[in-house]
Design a protein around this nucleic acid. Sequence first.
DNA 1: CGGTACATTGAAGGGGCTCAATCCACGTGG
DNA 2: CCACGTGGATTGAGCCCCTTCAATGTACCG
Lengths: 255, 255
Amino acid sequence: MPPRPMTAKPRVARPLTRKLSRLVTLAPGEIGILDDLQSATRVIRRNREIITEGRKYDALLILIDGVSIRCRILHDGRRQILNIALPGDFIGFPSAFSERALYSITALSDCVVAPVTFLRLLSLFDSQPKLAAAIFWSFACEAAMYAEHLIDVGRRSALERVAHFLLELLTRLQVIGLADERSFRMPLTQELIGDALGLSVPHVNRTLRQLRDDELVSIEEHIVIIRDVEALSALADFERSYLDQFRLPDMITKC
Amino acid sequence: MPPRPMTAKPRVARPLTRKLSRLVTLAPGEIGILDDLQSATRVIRRNREIITEGRKYDALLILIDGVSIRCRILHDGRRQILNIALPGDFIGFPSAFSERALYSITALSDCVVAPVTFLRLLSLFDSQPKLAAAIFWSFACEAAMYAEHLIDVGRRSALERVAHFLLELLTRLQVIGLADERSFRMPLTQELIGDALGLSVPHVNRTLRQLRDDELVSIEEHIVIIRDVEALSALADFERSYLDQFRLPDMITKC
DNA sequence: CGGTACATTGAAGGGGCTCAATCCACGTGG
DNA sequence: CCACGTGGATTGAGCCCCTTCAATGTACCG
């Protein structure tokens, strides 16, 4: 069994707790349970694999700190990034439900993760319907991001794709307190952006430049500033709502 | 409340039961519970919407019979099909967890669906860990198909895309007994294939023709025959395994 | 100071798109 | 029974977005 260094002390509020708190008013007991889920942690160094394709895994992971990507590399070297995980996200689904993991997950920066067994999750669903609903909501959110990602590569132009990508990243980082009103630190290189959006590196570069020339976005020292959120959203056909909307009041009773 | 016509009698085994039976040996009691889930049904006519974007929904649906698509239409008319649901699939996720449904789901043929409330699902998870694991597996399967879909549009050529699409459809239809060893009835027009794969209609047509010219596939009267599964799989980088692999033995105990 | 990683820019080519015409099967109403 | 309309398949011509290949710039780091 690999060593399991503990993080000395969480620097900020546990990210999943923070994320779910934005949706639902959590009772102290519920906060305690959530924090508990995120307490036993493991550290993975930058560029190492968190999950390796073909191996077998027994638990989901909550990403506590850092950024990771799940991707597939075709035989000739083409690569497609399937999703980008930020703190507070679950990773390792669907790997934990297959005999062998289907995709690798790689740490882009040093990462801290907390394992959650399937049984633990089920018992949580049983005893905490409110938390269950909130966690299901975060899965639903992820499904929506997948859908938008598919629309990106399937039907949007390079300009629309990159615009949409920047806006989604801004919104997601805001939710966990890692971005302010209009700006954030870009955690990806242009090559990674290209592999996420199905574009070549030169074209990502040209597209970013055009967004700068059009004064919609500015990028300096890896800091992205969205100069005109409205205009960029219109260009990208971006609806913030798919990451926001949630209903709890009637959900538990009526569903 | 809309009328809820009951189907007279299921013509074949309930599709979700059939699907999960292929993975797990189900006890008679478990089969009964599964069949129960699929008993109260509603019929939706061809070309009508099962779920309408912007509306509010309280339950997931199990598709019992027919084919449906979830899709998004951009302001200028471009359309991206997000997924294709076949009998035995859950639909309405993530719609049921948002204040307003994010995407429409349309019946391509006359469809029969069975609603399942969130609470019912949770209680099932609690009382039937084996079924819970199997249902989670089917969600995992769907996630894997999403991933492959993303790779299709992001990094595969038109030829690879169409080849992969045909093989995935073959495999999925086989699981529910709607395809034989090498052939099936294509439920989509070329326009729909294009909207699923991010291609134009003329190019879908040319691509299908090339597959025919290369004697990999033949299509007549909407019947698709994969003439060389091996070669087509190699071309498409298709691994059947992502729709097959499942482990139950240790999952419930160890996870 | 050389090496590595990343960003940037140019030139040329191609894969897939748009636009357009044609064909075919089928249903429907006169 | 035929004329017509409609939905879908098929094919061609021209073009454009994005790719590939290549070179250069630049910051950082051992």
